[in-house]
């Protein structure tokens, strides 16, 4: 596993009734790599990353994360694995009844004991908030924050457990172009600072251009193309060109 992929998705199939969302889809993610998955709305991008952390069960195939087959882990082992995999939700999924501090500390409750939380939580929370440029929001409620700020706080919450992998579900959706660019650069900064590997689900071409080392294009539930952003941009395949025009 040391030099192998941190995520290995092999022949994964997922359908909802008659709707086959993923058809024997395979992909790998190398340590420290930023892999973007590009696809139209409803093409199964979000389903794929939810399968990776077993939020959604898949029909067949295997998914190995950090060398562990997610489908055979019991719930306790899955919780331990999930702590090493950050997940940034499209809706941010901040706990709206908690302050920013409580949102960040909440992730620590399962993995740190009370003594550790008492001694170390404050510093870790402030460091995560500083990483996303929002240390002054620590006592604010999510409802008081703008869309871009919420996205940053959600990223800070993801960072607090120092994950080896971060899965980004549409990180720039619903944001203005300037904020989208800021978030995209933040993703790159996080990857460089913590040497995380990332899967970035998006249909925002600018975000993919800034963040990705490699792009997989998801069409009809399969990995239609797998190359660098520059190569795909110059492709003559009409189905690929559709995404860049």
């Amino acid at each position: 596993m040391k030099n192998g992929p941190v995520i290995d998705v092999h022949n994964v199939h997922k359908s909802f009734g008659e709707n086959h969302v993923l058809r024997d889809f395979s992909m790998t993610l190398a340590p420290g790599e930023n892999l973007a998955i590009l696809g139209k709305s409803g093409s199964g991008k979000s389903v794929l990353i939810k399968c990776i952390v077993r939020l959604i069960p898949f029909d067949h195939g295997t998914i190995e994360v950090l060398g562990e087959d997610v489908n055979v882990l019991d719930l306790d082992a899955l919780d331990v694995l999930r702590a090493r995999v950050g997940f940034l939700f499209q809706s941010n999924a901040l706990y709206d009844s908690m302050t920013v501090r409580e949102n960040l500390e909440f992730s620590l409750r399962r993995h740190w004991n009370a003594d550790q939380r008492k001694k170390g939580a404050e510093a870790v929370v402030l460091e995560a908030l500083t990483d996303v440029g929002l240390p002054h929001t620590v006592n604010m409620m999510p409802v008081e924050l703008s869309g871009g700020m919420r996205k940053r706080i959600a990223l800070a919450r993801t960072l607090i457990l120092r994950p080896s992998i971060i899965l980004y579900d549409e990180p720039t959706t619903g944001l203005d172009p300037i904020t989208s660019r800021e978030i995209s650069h933040l993703i790159v900064n996080v990857q460089q600072k913590y040497n995380t590997a990332s899967v970035i689900i998006s249909h925002d071409i600018n975000c993919i251009n800034i963040t990705s080392n490699r792009v997989v294009i998801l069409i009809d539930g399969t990995g239609y193309a797998n190359d660098t952003y520059a190569n795909l941009r110059n492709s003559n395949d009409p189905r690929i060109k559709d995404f860049f025009d």
């Binding site: 939810k50 952390v53 939020l55 719930l75 919780d79 331990v80 999930r82 702590a83 995999v85 997940f87 939700f89 499209q90 809706s91 999924a93 901040l94 706990y95 709206d96 909440f106 992730s107 409750r109 399962r110 993995h111 919450r157 457990l161």
Partner: peptide, 13 residues
């Protein structure tokens, strides 16, 4: 709003 999923992936039951 996926808050329950967020608890799940953070390892909190």
């Amino acid at each position: 709003t996926e808050q329950i999923d967020a608890m799940d992936v953070s390892g909190t039951n």
